[in-house]
Design a protein around this nucleic acid. Structure first.
Lengths: 216, 216
DNA sequence: AAGCTTCTTGACTGAATGGTCAAAGTTGAT
DNA sequence: ATCAACTTTGACCATTCAGTCAAGAAGCTT
């Protein structure tokens, strides 16, 4: 009797789990990539499984073999995204040089927008819909982190190490500016000319902007 | 023989037209308002006519009596929006005092976001989807206006009346910052506490930000 | 090569969706 | 009050959509 390849063998696709075979690994990846493409442009309700399956090059039943439902796919994408969403702000070091720390944070956010524009749009879509699926994340994890770092920044401002500034609005402004280049890339592209990289010049502009804002 | 109330009497709802009766006026308004609510949170494909009709307090066939199709409703909303979308930038006066002009432009944009957050989200949704329905508007009208005003700003910078700055990025930054408070209101609300007005403090912060950026 | 497991798919289902239609109800000018 | 025009709606249709299922194809391990 041949040993089963996978010991307990629950039905696959039920939860996020480590992929077992090379085929699972590949197809899950294909699906998530396709789903990211579709969800990030059409939102949850506007996306269809047929569309995602087609984009992934799989049949719809095959897609549903790997993920239980449309919702499961979407949740997998969000989970994966949120895991890394807090990183840039987490790295803001209370012991570092204030202006450099804030500029670096902005740069990390901008780099993420440039490297993962679809993830940025997925997030934007979710917020536009009122953040129904990530309310807990925002109200708890994100809020706590923001409040913590806002205090750090307020401390810097109070000590005169940067110009006085509302820390929450400072953080919001970084979010707004860095996400804009990903979320509104279509608009920027049409205005600057299609061939143009939407992000070109953005880094320099934002460096300059925040240097001016924060100089004591 | 009673004179017909409406002279040529084509089928109603075929095109945007001046409403004829009080009932038409009221119901068209109800529908557009409901549709704005739904389209702005779920996007075009994610919105349903049933949802819009319910929100408007009408039956679906009744809704379709006033607008030929889902697409027609959406188009009516966009048309109405785009008509006023360019106004704030148009008002930027080449003859005015540079810094005050730019700050006023930012203020007008911010005021529009505060007064019409749903319109802002409708626009954001459209851009996220790749701007399929407003490509012509952006590539032609908006682009031309932006280029024109960018030249004005470049002139001001060249003359040393404001600090040197990339005019396109300056404009993009104003869009990003002002729209963020409307489009990401859900997120801001969850972070600052639900009772909090997302826009509170934004005006002062942005005034300060741009004053610092532009001071020669 | 055998035999079990993992993958894949065509055919299907019930619900939702955009849209139609004819008939019924309402309105307002005469 | 009348009558034509305007408005509303219940019933309906074709299509799309999320999700199921059973049977077949491909992969592994021995």
């Amino acid at each position: 009797m041949p040993a089963p390849r996978t010991p307990p063998a629950e039905k696959p696709g039920t939860q996020a789990r480590a992929p077992r075979s090379r085929i699972q690994q590949r197809n899950r990846e294909l699906i998530l990539d396709a789903a990211l493409e579709v969800f990030s442009t059409h939102g949850f309700r506007g996306a269809t499984l047929d569309q995602i399956a087609a984009q992934a090059g799989l049949s719809k039943p095959n897609l549903l073999y790997y993920f239980d439902s449309k919702d499961t796919v979407h949740r997998a994408l969000l989970t994966r995204l949120l895991d890394s969403w807090l990183d840039p702000l987490r790295k803001l070091d209370p012991m570092g040089e204030p202006q450099a720390e804030i500029l670096s944070y902005m740069r990390r956010k901008l780099d993420m927008s440039r490297a993962y524009p679809r993830e940025s749009r997925l997030f934007a879509n979710e917020i536009l819909q009122g953040a129904p699926r990530i309310e807990a994340f925002i109200s708890n994890d994100l809020r706590a982190l923001v409040d913590e770092k806002a205090q750090v920044i307020a401390g810097w401002a109070g000590a005169g190490r940067i110009a006085p500034v509302d820390p929450h609005h400072l953080i919001f402004s970084i979010w707004a500016l860095t996400q804009h280049y990903a979320d509104f890339a279509a608009q920027i592209g049409m205005i600057r000319g299609e061939g143009h990289d939407p992000f070109s010049g953005a880094g320099d502009f934002l460096d300059h902007l925040y240097a001016r804002l924060l100089a004591p």
